[in-house]
Design a protein around this nucleic acid. Structure first.
Length: 152
DNA sequence: GCCAACGTTGGC
DNA sequence: GCCAACGTTGGC
């Protein structure tokens, strides 16, 4: 069982969308480093849902991986914005996973607060210039974050 | 909306 | 294989 942090823009697909849907395909990842992490994900892994590129970026809730890495279907659809003409059914380039909603936090745990947690010093999210959209989280980092989960 | 940092593309 | 140009990410 592994821990992850996954970013999404709330205006596109946010925690509220996932809560409504229950289970959703995490698609559209078109970065090789992130893709390689998706391939490592397994059913039962836990993940933090992070809102990026918005007014207050930060962690907003939890989810579980319910289906490990499999070919992201959007890469094969010419009509889709995530279509990749270089991808074939035989040799798919891109991977997706299915995630299931676990909980939405009562408040966001903002990026600015994450920067104040010493255990997170090495988290890629907090490195200057990092654009990695999903990343592994160590058990120590996971527990440090959950210890700061807002509860109002 | 700005813009620095980043990843990818493609000519050479 | 180099690297300039380009498009994208994402905090602010």
């Amino acid at each position: 069982m592994a821990y992850w942090l996954m970013k999404s823009e709330p205006q596109g697909f946010g925690i509220d969308h996932l809560q409504q849907r229950g289970i959703a395909l995490w698609d559209g990842v078109r970065n090789y480093q992130a893709r390689n992490f998706l391939r490592q994900m397994q059913a039962g892994d836990q993940a933090l849902f992070y809102h990026s590129n918005c007014k207050v970026p930060g962690i907003v809730g939890l989810m579980t991986i319910v289906k490990g890495g499999y070919p992201d279907p959007t890469q094969f659809n010419p009509e889709h914005r995530y279509y990749d003409p270089k991808s074939t059914l035989d040799q798919p380039r891109w991977t997706g996973v299915d995630v299931e909603f676990v909980e939405k936090w009562s408040e966001i745990l903002p990026l600015s607060a994450l920067r104040d947690i010493p255990e997170l010093e090495d988290l890629p999210l907090l490195q200057k210039g990092s654009r990695l959209s999903l990343m592994p989280v160590t058990m120590a980092q996971w527990h440090a974050i959950l210890a700061h989960k807002p509860n109002a």
